[in-house]
Design a protein around this nucleic acid. Sequence first.
DNA 1: CTTCCGTCTTGACGACTGTCAAGAAATCTC
DNA 2: GAGATTTCTTGACAGTCGTCAAGACGGAAG
Lengths: 210, 210
Amino acid sequence: MPGPAGRKPPADKYDERRRALAESALLTLGELGYAKASLREIANNSEFSHGVVHYYFEDKHELIVYCVREQKSVCVRRYDGVVADSTTPDELAAGFADKLVETLTNDAAMHRLWYDVRTQSMFEDRLREVAAEIDGWLEDMIWRIVSRYAELAGAEPAMPPSVLYAILDGLFQQALIGVTVGREGVLDELRALVNALMPTMITAPVAAPA
Amino acid sequence: MPGPAGRKPPADKYDERRRALAESALLTLGELGYAKASLREIANNSEFSHGVVHYYFEDKHELIVYCVREQKSVCVRRYDGVVADSTTPDELAAGFADKLVETLTNDAAMHRLWYDVRTQSMFEDRLREVAAEIDGWLEDMIWRIVSRYAELAGAEPAMPPSVLYAILDGLFQQALIGVTVGREGVLDELRALVNALMPTMITAPVAAPA
DNA sequence: CTTCCGTCTTGACGACTGTCAAGAAATCTC
DNA sequence: GAGATTTCTTGACAGTCGTCAAGACGGAAG
C-alpha cells in the first residue's frame, strides 16, 4: 500500500511519474475528449499499462483533473515574457497575437481538452472546482496583458477583467474550432483581429503622457 | 419495416412523434450532456420505452442531431420580433438584452446541450456538420440584430459577422456557466453589459441622418 | 544469496452501453 | 366482427468501461 500516503523512497519520483503519466494521457485525452478517452486507450498510447493509473491516481477523474490543471498552470504563463519585455503597446499586441497563433497550432489538443472539461463541468459537479479555478487563472492572464497594454498606452482598460476574458475567449474558441476542422486562413485572421481589437479594449490614450 | 422509408399512414404522424421524442430527450440530454445521457435514461425521463428510439431514429447520434437542430432552428428566430419592431437603437439593444437574459433562465438546458455538442464536434467527425450549420445560423442571427441596430443608429457594423458572433457568444457562454453554477447577479450583469457594448459594435453614428 | 518493498502487469469482475430481434399491443381496413 | 399493419415493449446480445486483486518483476538491504 504505497500509493498516495506513506512513502519511503524518493517522494519526488512519485510526483515525477504522475506528471509523466498525465503528460502522455494528454495525447489521447486531447484527441478523443474527456468522455471517449478510456483508460485503456490512454495506456495504449503510452508506455504504461492500463492498471498503473490506479497506482498513481485515485481514479480516472483525478488523472484528468491533474492533467488539465498541470497543463494549464504553465499555459497561463505563456505571455509573461511579452508582457514584461514589450516597450510599446503595438509591440505587446503583436507579441500577444503571435503567441496566440503559435499555441493554437502547437497546443491545439490541450486547448480542446480544456474547452471539453469546462463544458463538461456544466454537467458534472466534480469538474466545477477545477474549471472555475482555471477560468480564474485565464482571466487573470488576460488582465495582466490588457492592463499592461493600457499602461504602455497611457490609458486604462475599458472593461472589467471578466468581460475582456469572455470576449477574447470567444474569439479564441472559434479560432480553435476553425483550426480543428482545417479551415484556411484562421491563423492570420486571428492575428490581424487581435491587433485590431486591442486598441478598443482601453480608454482613449492620453496624447502626451509626460 | 415501417421505419424511415415507405410509410402508408399519415406521414405527418411520424414526424410529429419524432419531434415529441426529441423534445422529451432534451430534458435528459440537457441535464446529463451528450456523453453521459444513455438511451435508457432518456427513455426513463419520458413516456417512451428505451427501444422505441430505433423505430424513429437510425441510432443515438441521429436522435441527438435531430434534437439539437430542431431546438436551435426555433432558437435562432427568438430575436426576430425585437429586430422588426424596434424603432430606436436603444430599444433594440434593450429588447435584445432582455431576451438574452430570458432564454438564459428558461432554456439553460438547451444552451448547455448546444455548447456540449459544439465542443464534442471537435472530437467527433459526425457532429461537425450540424455544429457548423448551427454556428452559421447563430452568426446570421447576431448579424441581423447588429446590422439592424446600426441601421437604426445611422451607422454601420464595426466588425464582420464572425467577430461579432464570437464576442457575443463568449459573453453568453460565460453567463451560462455562471447561471449553471448558481452565481449571483449574472443575469443583471449580462443585461447591463449588452446594453453597454452594443454601441461599440458600430461605427460612430452620423449626427443628423436626414 | 535471501528478503523485502516499491513498482507494475495481467486478468478478471460487475455494471453499463447501443443495438436489435421477437412478439405483444394498438390501430386501421374491410 | 376478422385480418393486416403500424406501433411499441421486453429481453437479450456483444462490447466497453472503471476498478481492483493477485501476483510478477526489479532493485536495494541484510
